[in-house]
Design a protein around this nucleic acid. Structure first.
Lengths: 215, 215
DNA sequence: TAGATTGTTAATCGATTAACAATC
DNA sequence: TAGATTGTTAATCGATTAACAATC
């Protein structure tokens, strides 16, 4: 890799999409692709694609383009897709359960190894071949299994205490579906937020203001 | 409003968060707040906050700051939170069901008015007091109810045909959880994408590369 | 070799931050 | 009036796009 660790969020945010498109190209039988062909498919500029890839070193060949399989593998490696980080789900409500069942963790770099909820009525419930455990058992579980990350599908008010517990158990990375701002209290954690509410409200804004524009 | 319709995505993306924080401040009993106080709470610069608000016109008062209730109401109006757009869910799998049950549509500018699935075995199933309908009934439903938007919780391969049907029924706005790129085929639609897979892979990248950095 | 296409430098564009005059 | 804080202009920063020499 070229620059040590100062890849911008914009570039990082495009990596999964590159990885996905390259997978599709591979399935379609493409062996090579040029930045300009890829740019048309993805709706980016060829220039941006070349800039992006070059953050990680030259994957292409002048006059030829990029080898699809090789490029995909490289990006997969950069993402760390084969590391299968151990992740647990905390909060087995509607959303948590759906996330556990819907996502193909294997293909996204993770392995779902445990599900926890503080509601004892859920204890033992089977979700995708994992039994829901009591949150009281989190410490001993973590001592044995040493998960890398946790999915937080809990109410905002539970955010701080739950995260505190998880951090004390050695978990440092979070996929956060709550509005609780983890890094405010735990600045050394790695956090990826999913704010569904904000996303829905953004749609609302766009509907409102496209209608206004038409008037 | 100042500029007609060229508010940047960055600004729009912050509106729901402003709205949420102002709601919290209101509950805490704040009557007024300055851009600098708000900036500390939200982790932004005071400058950015003032710039953002000024895109929509002056909501503040020199020497005083912003009236919390009033500012919140203004932003709510800009978003169109009181329009209660009629939205339907298409695809009542794990994720769709969770979305329907988890989200407080009322508070985000929408009203969930129907749930559809092409799997006839789900027809009649009650989700949050709405019975799942067959997708075959979509046309007649839309003629009567005239929904504004649809939540797409369907597999990518179904994306095009389902969207085509919905667009032909007069639906122009989409909250899209699939990887299908709606605007490629329907450039005049309003689309807000939620790409959970990409988000999870971004977390994977960050874990991988923070670990690298420590080495 | 000639043609194609990358890797990389330079130019542009847009968003964020800083500064300060206007004004409550 | 004096102090505070906005609204707004100017400066900076970063990301995207354009251009082109390097090279396969």
């Amino acid at each position: 890799m070229k620059d040590e660790n100062n890849i911008s969020k914009s570039v990082i945010g495009r990596l999964p999409r590159y990885y996905r498109f390259l997978g599709m190209l591979l399935e379609e039988g493409y062996e090579r692709i040029s930045s300009s062909e890829l740019s048309k498919r993805m709706g980016l500029t060829a220039s941006q694609i070349r800039q992006d890839f070059n953050h990680f070193g030259g994957f292409g060949q002048q006059g030829y383009g990029y080898n699809v399989a090789q490029l995909r593998q490289n990006i997969g490696k950069i993402i760390g897709i084969d590391n299968y980080y151990k992740i647990i789900l905390v909060g087995a409500g509607n959303l948590g359960r759906a996330i556990a069942q819907h996502l193909n963790f294997q293909k996204k770099g993770f392995r779902l190894v445990g599900i926890f909820d503080s509601d004892e009525r859920l204890t033992g419930l089977d979700i995708n071949n994992l039994a829901v455990r009591s949150f009281d058992d989190i410490s001993s579980f973590c001592k044995n299994i040493k998960p890398d990350a946790a999915i937080l599908c809990i109410p905002e008010r539970a955010g701080k205490s739950v995260t505190e517990k998880l951090v004390s158990c050695g978990i440092t990375s979070f996929w956060n579906f709550s509005h609780y701002n983890i890094t405010d209290d735990f600045p050394d954690t790695i956090v990826e937020n999913v704010h569904l509410n904000d996303s829905l409200m953004t749609l609302c804004y766009n509907i409102t203001n496209s209608a206004e524009a038409k008037k």
